[in-house]
Design a binder for these strands. Structure first.
Length: 609
RNA sequence: GGUCCGGUAGUUCAGUUUGGUUAGAAUGCUGGCCUGUCACGCCAGAGGUCGCGGGUUCGAGUCCCGUCCGGACCGCCA
């Protein structure tokens, strides 16, 4: 075999090892490694290369003593060249051991080098040694995603994601679940998020929709007697993006016949425990604590409360009744609330701090009307309320301090407004203050179930009720009679699973009685004809012995994001989309030929203005 | 649809507050030297549509208007 050459033939020796596995146990062995040039240290007489593949880094050495021709040829090597080398594993002298590298005790002395592919200088540094602070912009890295994927950081997240898939398959198989695929081209349902539509060539003017979730299909699988269903499935929602929202995302979709809430809870808890155990080696306590929707909103101002810290919201509505302060009186007489939040140790904050908090945080970021605060100095001097005593008498301020439990040296923040807006605003403020206090334990894993969601919510724009979860969610039996005359107070058999303040899944026990399903459509204001047209197949199915059933859908991307401590979904998806739903590498979406539109019987109308 | 932040060598950034000579640094790149480095080191060199368009001005990276791209958030997301 020639000791050095260009890649002129189809032949190159088989890889014997990866760049992550060689150690002192392989001393003296002749090995073949393949990989990318990570870094090159050319000392003139001797050349060191860190060779990189999926498994790690190995230092390889080109020295004239081992093979003069290979050493001379190695002069050509540059970053990201793909090479194949043959060499001998040798021990490094004690003072040249690299303790940072898994393979740092050894190096491979190269006797033969083959360049499999050259590389232009990459547009950004992708070396394993690149510091986080010097990372190229995400924009650029997305454009060259295949280069970004070579970085250990991103690659390890893909590996972690793979591990998550494997645990899911094993767990549900052991629990007796069947993996069933549901259609990707399905019927559009106007309820809920905007659909991605696919025009039908065969049926001019008709469209398929990509699934927002396989909801109806998995219910039909239960009616079909498959008993336990699971699928790792892509879902699509044409809504604006966030750090934790992509237009296409992956759900762990689960449905069980004869399920109760308790069955779903323990099944889900078992999966989470296994994931955390096998992926992170962390034991998480089960069962998870439960919180009703009402309690979550009132105490934490969110239906996905971050429970890694306490900092509860207190209701000061009764304390401030008839206070004479117009802002409070107006809010209360309109059926709203006055809420307080105690920030321990912030009672000595200055005027400037309070002004900034009010202006930039409360008004600008949170969008609340304005912040009222009471500072209780730590030196024992009287409390200092931002509303003067002739407008809000002292007795009410004292009362608020007492009922909120604020102490000397604390700061009491007060917001007022209508339900649930003010609760949610206070919830955002709670999160902000927790970050300022530094009271969020970044290493904690705090799971919780949120239960007893309302079945319906009033849609101000449409002037009708809409389903909070989806139209197939079962009301609680004891609330069923309210559906006619007090729909807002009907509680659903719906639940969300929350981790560290992020919703990672949600589900419900479904309606399996066709009369209840019809009542539900009535409550949603969907005319009989329309419900027949849209969901007739489901209503039909409910006529033929539908078992009680229920399930859950978990956001796989979000779970992987949390497991890998990423701050964006984009970091755990191989080819994600940007905030404007584009994919910068391939330039998706793009226009198509006029012919192809014609074939589909559709026309593109230019956007006006 | 809205609010806010950003866009300057290949890359990461400074320079914009207060307009003024030839737009800097680090890193990468190219060439040279170097036999134990490990983000090697030393010397030299090349490298710029200051996102784009318009305006104000004697003069714009800097001020104004518009626009595009990226990001965070609000609306939206059953």
């Amino acid at each position: 075999m020639s000791s050095f050459s260009e890649n002129t033939t189809n032949q190159h020796p088989d890889r014997t090892h990866t760049c992550g596995e060689l150690s002192e146990f392989h001393l003296g062995e002749q090995v073949v490694l393949k990989g990318w040039v990570d870094t090159r240290r050319d000392l003139g007489g001797v050349i060191f290369i860190d060779l990189r593949d999926r498994y790690g880094l190995t230092q390889i050495v080109f020295s004239p003593q081992d093979n003069p021709a290979a050493h001379e040829f190695a002069d050509r090597l540059r970053s990201e060249y793909v090479i194949s080398i043959t060499g001998t594993v040798s021990l490094r002298s004690e003072e040249t051991v690299n303790p940072i590298l898994a393979t740092g005790k050894i190096e491979v002395r190269v006797t033969s080098l083959l360049i499999l592919a050259e590389s232009e200088p990459p547009p950004f540094s992708i070396s394993s040694h690149t510091q986080k602070a010097k990372l190229a912009s995400e924009d650029l890295r997305l454009k060259y995603r295949y280069l970004d994927l070579r970085r250990p950081d991103l690659r390890n997240k893909m590996i972690l994601r793979h591990q998550v898939y494997q645990v899911i398959h094993r767990y549900f198989d052991a629990e007796g679940f069947l993996e069933v695929e549901t259609p990707t081209l399905m019927k559009s349902t106007p309820e809920g998020a905007r659909d991605y539509l696919v025009p039908s060539r065969v049926h001019p003017g008709s469209f398929y929709a990509l699934p927002q979730s396989p909801q109806t299909y998995k219910q039909l699988l239960m009616i079909g007697g498959l008993d336990k269903y699971v699928q790792i499935v892509k879902c699509f929602r044409d809504e604006d993006l966030r750090a934790d929202r992509q237009p296409e995302f992956t759900q762990i979709d689960v449905e069980m016949a004869f399920a109760t809430e308790e069955a779903i809870y323990s099944l889900t808890e078992g999966l989470m425990a296994m994931l955390w155990e096998e992926v992170l080696g962390v034991t998480i306590p089960t069962p998870f604590p439960r919180l009703t929707y009402q309690d979550a909103i009132w105490k934490y101002g969110s239906d996905k409360p971050d429970l890694r810290f306490d900092l509860p919201i207190c209701n000061l509505s009764s304390t401030f009744e008839n206070s004479g302060f117009r802002v409070f009186d107006q809010a209360l007489s309109a059926g709203g609330s006055v809420l307080g939040l105690v920030i321990p140790g912030f009672g000595d904050k200055g005027r400037g701090y309070m002004d900034r908090l009010d202006k930039t945080v409360v008004r600008k970021q949170i969008g609340a009307g304005g912040l009222i605060h009471v500072r209780i100095p730590s030196d024992g001097t009287p409390p200092n309320c931002s509303v003067k005593a002739h407008v809000l008498p002292d007795e009410f301020v004292t009362g608020a301090i007492q009922s909120s439990g604020a102490d000397t040296g604390d700061l009491l923040l007060v917001l007022c407004g209508k339900w649930p807006t003010v609760q949610e605003q206070m919830g955002t403020l709670r999160l902000h203050m927790a970050r300022e206090l530094g009271s969020i334990d970044e290493r904690a894993w705090t799971f919780a179930w949120i239960t007893e969601f309302p079945l319906l919510q009033w849609d101000e724009r449409e002037k009708r009720y809409s389903a909070m979860h989806h139209p197939f969610t079962s009301p609680r039996t004891e609330d069923l009679e309210l559906l006619q005359h007090d729909p807002a107070h009907v509680r659903a058999r719906a639940y969300d699973i929350v981790l560290n303040g992020m919703e990672i899944g949600g589900g419900s026990i479904r309606i399996h009685d066709k009369n209840v399903q019809k009542q539900m459509f009535d409550a949603l204001g969907i005319p009989k004809k329309e419900s027949e047209e849209r969901f007739g197949f489901l209503l039909n199915a409910l006529r033929y012995g539908a078992p009680p059933h229920g399930g859950i859908a978990m956001g796989l991307d979000r779970i992987v994001m949390l497991l890998s401590r990423s701050t964006s979904l984009r970091d755990v998806i191989a080819f994600p989309k940007t905030q404007s739903a584009q994919e910068p590498m391939s330039g998706t979406p793009s226009t198509v030929e006029r012919d192809r539109l014609q074939e589909l019987n559709i026309q593109s109308i230019p956007k006006s203005e």
